[in-house]
């Protein structure tokens, strides 16, 4: 079994050589290109490791007042009053260096991971919005055809409202330019979710969700597929918005008694999805 596999591997290698013909002619050998890439990747990994260390330190410094208050045993109410110094915000402290390093190692997987991290951090903070926009430019310039872009898109709809217009522009470019269906689907889905948040653009959001359902229904989303994922989103966008009549819930109370949501009509309801974990 093993020798046969080896032989199969050799055959593939030969075919790969034949396919990459012209490229081989220009470089000294295909191996050296790979080694250079690997070296670049390793250097990038190391650089981002250093920055992440700084990021952890910055986070520790930023949250220090809270950590100290907790050690003193302050109550939640008192904790809420503590204001953190915006100048110590880890994104503001380490973000600029992170951006420079992303530029330096653009194209590597490590830099793509850093882009993801920066979008998550900067996309939710208004004063760091400009950094998120820089990251999107870097992604457009270096990763538009990259399959792994999907990892960055997955949570992009959780961006702040201020960030939403820039994010929508970016996602539209991704949907039309990416050659990978997984990336297109993730981009289209996130775009739909952002458009669906606001009443003015909700119909656009619904149309995009339907596009995801029709064109990308078979594309996998975690352990499921987009066709299933989108069902819940369509229901939410149509029936669970501010201004909608709350859909009925009929079920058993924890005690075992039957209960229905509409029997609370006449009262203001705080509907709380909770669990103790």
């Amino acid at each position: 079994m093993i020798p046969r596999l080896r032989r199969y591997g050799t055959v593939c290698l030969v075919i790969a050589f034949m396919l990459s013909g012209p490229a081989v002619a220009f470089s000294s050998s295909p191996d050296s290109v790979g080694v250079a890439d690997e070296k670049m990747e390793a250097a990038a990994e190391k650089a981002f490791e250093e920055i992440n260390k700084k990021m952890s330190e910055a986070q520790e410094a930023y949250y220090k007042p809270l950590t100290e208050a907790r050690e003193k045993g302050l109550s939640d109410k008192e904790m809420e009053k503590i204001e953190l110094d915006p100048e110590l915000d880890p994104v503001m402290v380490v973000g600029p260096e992170m951006l420079k390093t992303i530029d330096k190692y653009a194209g590597t997987d490590a830099a793509l991971g850093a882009c993801d991290q920066m979008l998550a951090l900067a996309g939710r903070s208004e004063s760091a919005g400009w950094m998120a926009e820089k990251v999107m430019s870097a992604l457009k310039a270096h990763y538009l055809k990259n399959e792994k872009l999907v990892d960055v898109l997955r949570y992009s709809h959780y961006c702040s409202e201020a960030m939403a217009p820039a994010m929508c522009d970016f996602l539209s470019v991704v949907v039309s330019e990416s050659p990978h269906r997984e990336v297109q689907a993730a981009g289209c889905y996130s775009l739909a979710k952002i458009k669906g948040k606001k009443e003015e653009t909700r119909s656009e959001g619904l149309a995009l969700l339907k596009k995801v359902q029709d064109e990308y229904g078979d594309v996998s989303y975690g352990r499921s597929v987009y066709a299933d994922k989108v069902k819940g989103d369509l229901f939410e966008m149509k029936n669970l918005q501010v201004g909608c009549v709350a859909p009925e819930i009929i079920g058993k109370e924890i005690s075992g008694k039957l209960m229905q949501l509409s029997s609370f009509r006449g009262k203001v309801i705080l509907l709380d999805f909770w669990g103790d974990w």
């Binding site: 819940g232 909608c244 009549v245 709350a246 009509r265 009262k267 309801i269 509907l271």
Partner: peptide
């Protein structure tokens, strides 16, 4: 209700409107 994060909160008025 498409809940993917906990806790998720809705406030519904006395007429049943979200």
């Amino acid at each position: 209700w498409n809940v993917t994060g906990w806790p998720t909160i809705y406030l519904i008025d006395a007429k049943g409107i979200i």
